[in-house]
Simulated assay, not measured.
Amino acid sequence: MSTPRAHDAGESDDSDVNGVDDAVRALLLLMPRMAGRIKKTPVPEALQSFSLAPRHLSLLSYLLFDGPMTVNELAAQLQVAPTTVSLLVGDLNRQGILERREDEADRRRRIIGIAAGQQPAIAAWLAPGASAWRRALAPLTPDQRQVFVDTLLAYEAAVSDEEPG
């Protein structure tokens, strides 16, 4: 694991290391606050009995925003193995949160979607986060938004590279 480097106030560096360190410091202070606020987002009453976890949020988000899809499509979006998605889908299907139906084009395939009765509660649960991201991203240009998303993806990859295991 790398550690933050301290710099003397008079130290000159053409690569703007001090600026990067200032940004790192700001983000190290910001990220725990953001994570704490996200964790405090209340699960709607209609969903509280289902023991939903953060791993369910991404799956439900894809289905809410992109509509029904196959297990393999979900696995590709979530960047996990299809067996992992199958387990999540099976659990959520048993609880009545998701529905499986035959694909009209290929009856061997199953299409996964949010159960109609659960759609409003799931949309309400995800709406505050989506609204906050829209407000934060709206002032940016499309290129700036892409840099922001790419930066978060690069951070995720870097953190994954540093995790023991």
Rank of each mutant, 00 (worst) to 15 (best):
146 Q>Y: 08
59 L>W: 01
123 A>C: 06
64 L>Q: 01
99 E>R: 00
112 I>S: 00
6 A>C: 09
24 V>T: 06
4 P>S: 10
146 Q>N: 12
148 F>I: 13
115 A>V: 02
77 Q>I: 00
103 D>H: 01
44 P>N: 03
117 G>R: 02
24 V>R: 06
162 E>F: 09
69 M>N: 02
147 V>M: 15
42 P>A: 11
78 L>Q: 03
163 E>R: 06
106 D>S: 01
153 L>T: 13
13 D>M: 12
80 V>F: 00
61 S>Q: 06
10 G>C: 08
161 D>W: 03
104 E>N: 09
149 V>D: 05
40 K>Y: 11
1 M>C: 07
162 E>D: 15
116 A>C: 10
54 P>A: 02
3 T>G: 07
138 A>I: 07
20 V>G: 03
156 E>G: 12
80 V>H: 00
75 A>F: 00
159 V>I: 06
13 D>Y: 12
128 P>R: 10
135 R>H: 08
68 P>Q: 12
90 G>T: 06
161 D>S: 10
17 V>I: 11
146 Q>K: 14
32 P>T: 11
80 V>L: 00
35 A>Y: 13
41 T>Y: 09
22 D>E: 15
25 R>Q: 09
77 Q>A: 05
14 D>Y: 09
150 D>Y: 03
6 A>M: 10
140 L>T: 03
63 L>R: 00
72 N>Q: 10
46 A>H: 02
31 M>V: 14
47 L>T: 11
163 E>H: 13
40 K>G: 06
45 E>Y: 03
104 E>A: 10
165 G>W: 11
126 L>G: 13
11 E>Q: 12
85 V>L: 02
154 A>G: 09
78 L>F: 02
5 R>V: 14
31 M>Y: 08
49 S>E: 05
44 P>C: 03
